[in-house]
């Protein structure tokens, strides 16, 4: 009975793609070709380069000082002088958006790097050593996963110390669990492979085996997870800043610009003001997700080239 449930394995089609292209390609070559055949991934990559570039070169690109208040320009509509309009204090919105990108991206990348580092280390230790260490780490993961993230984040940031640094620390402490689960899984299957046995036979130390021999094989899924994580952390930062407990004015972030835009008069007369900061968050997160999914498909050997 159970046998009947099994699906027939899909017939393996001989992969003639290499012949079509006339030469044998390396793993990296296949990966690059597959990634660039994915239109959404390429769109995401181009958008990201534009967004990151505009944030990095904000001082050169911004037409105005982001904090300079021109009283007569209050809630000025988009014009040649103020391409995306001005806010309620007469500050140029485009300039503020560009500078806000610096802070939002900085928090997103820094949180991603720290969370990935913690998660990968914890996951590798849990998966490689197993036993009681594994149980303890994975129970901690279960417990932290039980709290809807935003409640602990708000509590940590608001009650302890609202600052960009503390924001990054809180995100890292509360955001490493899925990476840990991922790397633990990779570790469990990789540690049984021959090359690990070979390394062990040669008397190489455990830590070197974990970090120099096994981890490079898990780098693909790790990069995918990290890419998607940046988007999630940017959403988290902007949510907290919007609620007034993340990064506070006058430092502009996309989130706290929206807090200021939450006002009946602005809703009636200045539609561009609440529109653009949110659009920036949306496009940034969307691009990270497109790139992350593109990377995943490109790294997956089951997804074949067109």
């Amino acid at each position: 009975m159970d046998q009947l449930q099994h699906r027939k394995p899909e017939p393996m089609t001989p992969n003639n793609n290499h012949d079509n292209l006339g030469k044998h390609r390396s793993m990296l070559g296949i990966f690059v070709v597959k990634f660039f055949q994915n239109k959404l991934a390429v769109f995401g990559l181009v958008m990201l380069l534009l967004i990151i570039g505009s944030a990095v070169f904000a001082p050169l690109l911004a037409p105005h000082d982001p904090n300079y208040q021109t009283l007569v320009a209050r809630l000025h509509e988009p014009s040649a002088e103020y391409p995306l309009g001005a806010d309620q204090l007469g500050r140029d919105l485009l300039s503020r958006l560009l500078y806000a990108g610096q802070m939002s991206l900085l928090v997103g990348f820094a949180a991603m790097a720290s969370a990935t580092f913690i998660g990968a280390t914890m996951g590798a230790i849990a998966g490689y050593f197993g036993g009681i260490i594994d149980s303890i780490i994975m129970r901690i993961v279960d417990i932290l996963f039980s709290f809807p993230n935003i409640f602990l984040m708000i509590t940590l940031v608001a009650l302890f110390r609202p600052s960009p640094f503390w924001l990054i620390v809180s995100f890292a402490v509360l955001g490493w669990m899925s990476t840990a689960r991922l790397i633990r899984g990779e570790m469990l299957s990789l540690k049984k492979r021959e090359f690990v046995l070979a390394a062990r036979t040669l008397g190489i130390s455990k830590w070197r085996i974990i970090f120099n021999h096994i981890m490079p094989n898990a780098i693909g899924p790790l990069i995918v997870a990290a890419t998607l994580a940046v988007g999630q952390f940017i959403i988290a930062e902007s949510t907290l800043s919007f609620l007034g407990i993340g990064i506070s004015p006058p430092t502009a972030t996309w989130g706290n610009m929206l807090t200021a835009a939450q006002n009946l008069t602005i809703f009636q007369t200045a539609w561009w003001y609440p529109l653009f900061p949110g659009l920036m968050i949306f496009l940034t997160v969307l691009s990270f997700n497109f790139v992350g999914d593109g990377l995943r498909d490109a790294l997956d050997p089951r997804v074949v080239e067109k």
């Binding site: 959404l40 988007g231 959403i235 902007s238 949510t239 919007f242 929206l258 835009a261 939450q262 009946l264 809703f267 009636q268 539609w271 609440p274 529109l275 900061p277 949110g278 968050i281 949306f282 997160v285 969307l286 997700n289 497109f290």
Partner: peptide, 23 residues
């Protein structure tokens, strides 16, 4: 559905209030 995952919910809320409720 990609867009739905990436869009910040507070911004969607603000947009709906601004266009559908206020305007």
């Amino acid at each position: 559905s990609f867009a739905g995952v990436a869009v910040p919910n507070f911004w969607i809320g603000l947009m709906l209030i601004m266009f559908l409720s206020v305007q």
